[in-house]
Amino acid sequence: MIENAVYSPVLVITLAALATYASRLLGAFLSGRLTTASPIVDWITCVTYALLAGLVVRMIWMPIGTLAQTPDWWRFAAAASGLIVFMISRKNVGLGVLAGSLVLMGLSWSA
């Protein structure tokens, strides 16, 4: 049920799974032979961080699906509340996520 794509969900899920298992397999193969503090591992970490940061900001700012029907400021307010609770709770991720989600729920409830 993918809107614009020409490939089937099962195909894309399978390929994503294989791309994921490849890392686990290679990790198992290299286990004991690779030091985790190598520049290559640092580089992979940086690429992952940049990629996911880009995805997260886009998912909050320009979401797809159900979230796309909400006004921008709801999502910004929810993310900001989550961030504030996270900071005042001494970096409690669970509380931050809970607070942010509740704010989004509250905003859509009162609309």
């Binding site: 894309v12 994503a16 791309a19 890392s23 686990r24 990790g27 290299l30 286990s31």
Partner: peptide, 21 residues
Amino acid sequence: IVLSVAFINARLLPLAASLLP
């Protein structure tokens, strides 16, 4: 998609390599 997923999940490589020994 495959390239993005491969990179995102490449973090599992050092995890597996450091855990399995």
